[in-house]
């Protein structure tokens, strides 16, 4: 086993351990932090694969954005120090069955798909300029239409926010 592989297993155990803790933690705040560990692990995996841009975006969006939002909403809504009681065992059984079914489905898909090596392994670098060009061009392998669709979605979300937040003056 090479040192690279050891690093991979360390990162993978971080992701899986974080995910496992996130669903088993009895305190909601600790669950959020476990989720954070898992998401940082995914970013680390991207760095390990030399996809720095995706890794940084993963860190900014998921860790710096979404987890902070989750923690804030936990602070504001729940009693975060409260220990959640054990769920009913029948529910636990159903949850296990559901998880196992999902895992089996994904695993069978992965098993059937034969992964082909497209690059030359670890020795490639991902230029940010290429990402930008792919995002804003119209040829094959480019993403202008999805980009615009996402911007439309964000616009709709912004309009929705303003509608919720606006003060309607009543006489």
């Amino acid at each position: 086993m090479t040192a690279y592989q050891i690093w991979f297993y360390i990162i993978a155990s971080m992701i899986l351990g974080g995910a496992l803790l996130a669903v088993t933690a009895r305190k909601i705040f600790r669950a959020a932090i476990a989720l954070l560990v898992s998401l940082i692990g995914i970013a680390a995996l991207y760095y390990w694969m030399h996809y720095e841009f995706i890794a940084a975006v993963q860190t900014i969006v998921y860790v710096g954005g979404i987890v902070v939002l989750i923690i804030f909403s936990i602070f504001l809504t729940h009693n975060p120090g409260h220990t959640i009681e054990e769920p009913v065992s029948i529910r636990e059984a159903f949850a296990f069955t559901g998880c196992f079914a999902g895992f089996a489905f994904v695993f069978s898909l992965l098993n059937r798909y034969s992964f082909e090596q497209t690059g030359d392994g670890l020795n490639h670098t991902m230029q940010v300029a290429d990402v930008g060009r792919a995002l804003l061009s119209t040829g094959s392998g480019s993403y202008l239409l999805p980009f615009e669709a996402v911007s439309l979605l964000l616009l709709a979300a912004m309009v929705g926010c303003i509608v919720i937040a606006i003060k309607i003056r009543t006489k």
Binding site: I33, F53, A56, T59
Partner: peptide, 21 residues
């Protein structure tokens, strides 16, 4: 690394988590 400034921005946004914890 080729996204140096983006990396720094992303890492500094992690610091909030520690403060919240």
């Amino acid at each position: 690394l080729n996204i140096g400034v983006l990396y720094i921005t992303s890492i500094t946004s992690l610091g909030v988590i520690g403060i919240l914890i």
